[in-house]
Design a protein around this nucleic acid. Structure first.
Lengths: 225, 225
DNA sequence: TTTGACATCTTGTTAAGACAAGTATACACG
DNA sequence: CGTGTATACTTGTCTTAACAAGATGTCAAA
């Protein structure tokens, strides 16, 4: 209790044994929970000292996961407008260039084009490519209301778990400019993304174009190693 | 052993018990290792079935971590050229806009400007801001040879562990264009990044500008949840 | 006052085991 | 031939236990 002040300033979490006693679980279980918080970058741990809270993370849209969920978590209101829903015979070239070593052959895709909005302001123009064989019977009605991920889950039992992505700069052409309400030639970020399930099934290919003025993609608490 | 073929087609990894026996460790230890591989997206696991390898990840530069290390891991040769090394009295506006709720007051920074090259081709223009108080005595000589992270580790014992980032599009001005060998007005990606230690100490602020032609930032195997 | 030994706290690591729950196979029964 | 059941796998979750190793405070000795 000598340096009580400085110690109480630093100690943020009870010790593992204290937590185990409080919640009536074993120390191993407490450690599982604390390790998960550590992996998320929410706390840090020091051998011989204790566990401490880290400062707050930044918020915002990462471009991974459900657009709807991410925007809601950031405290804003998400919305989408379907621009087009057609069948195409191949993926855009940039997809294979950046993400695929072996582009799929003889496949066709549903191409769902949407404008994504945050608080009614358009921020992204998004083309989602869905394998017609995998998603046989997919109708426009299925994607018109609610999140695409919810539809994939409900009708086929697919759950997006992982994403690989490539990011490059670009400029808005006439169509993009019109949909996002920006000038032709304005700088944009293009994100190419492949989403797959926990079992390594490819669920979707996405080309997303984000406007640059007043909007940025965020990457939260990324572990360096 | 009836359906031996189909089983051997799917089973990629021995069971936890088999691994425990083979390496003479407990099942808990085996699970720790397998769980880590799972979190990295290298394998997936199914209750009642087993653990399986996932398809290969994409490579490339993520913009996090050590540029030197990342480029080397991608099988290319990294190099850097110091453009400038001066003291400045504040961080660039974009840094506070995107990443900092409370911008530091009354601080000054070393500003290290470097051009980053992959196989001798310039791909990024990078400004690193280092707190002059934290890095008291930092000289140009300290950053001229080898990686900055190595210097931070050697002289102050700092180890970069986490990064928060924001990404936005931009266009190359005259200076950037000259350094990257691209045209004025060419699209670029601007990445704002704050790197911190495991103990939540801010180690550096970085503004990085990436060229767009033939180069893309990659985000490897990102968990969705 | 300074130093060093010691006890006591913390997290890190590993062990051995129990039980739940999902999967797959073999086999008897209809 | 098809079906349900029992059995033997798998991973998921949890418990109790021991020891290592770093951090910290106490206290006696120099």
């Amino acid at each position: 209790m000598q340096h009580g002040l400085s110690r109480s300033e630093r100690t943020a979490l009870p010790s593992e044994n204290e937590l185990a006693a409080e919640f009536k679980v074993s120390r191993v279980t407490v450690r599982q929970a604390l390790d998960e918080l550590h992996r998320k970058g929410l706390i840090y741990r020091e051998k011989g000292r204790g566990s401490y809270a880290r400062s707050q993370q930044i918020g915002g849209v990462t471009g991974f996961g459900s657009f709807t969920t991410e925007v809601e978590n950031a405290g804003s209101k998400p919305s989408s407008r379907i621009v087009d829903f057609v069948k195409v015979s191949s993926l855009p070239a940039g997809m294979t260039i950046h993400l695929l070593k072996m582009p799929p052959k003889n496949k066709s895709y549903h191409c769902l084009t949407r404008v994504r909005c945050v608080d009614s302001k358009p921020v992204a123009y998004e083309e989602t490519y869905l394998d017609t064989e995998t998603y046989a019977g997919l109708e426009r009605a299925d994607v018109e209301n609610g999140s695409l991920y919810a539809t994939m889950r409900r009708l086929w039992g697919y759950e997006p778990a992982w994403a690989d992505a490539a990011i490059e700069p670009g400029v808005a052409d006439e169509a993009i400019a019109k949909h996002l309400g920006i000038n032709v030639g304005a700088p944009v970020v293009i994100a190419w993304r492949v989403t797959s399930s926990e079992q390594d099934e490819v669920l979707e290919y996405v080309k997303a174009i984000y406007r640059g003025d007043g909007f940025a993609l965020t990457v939260r608490r990324h572990k360096i190693s």
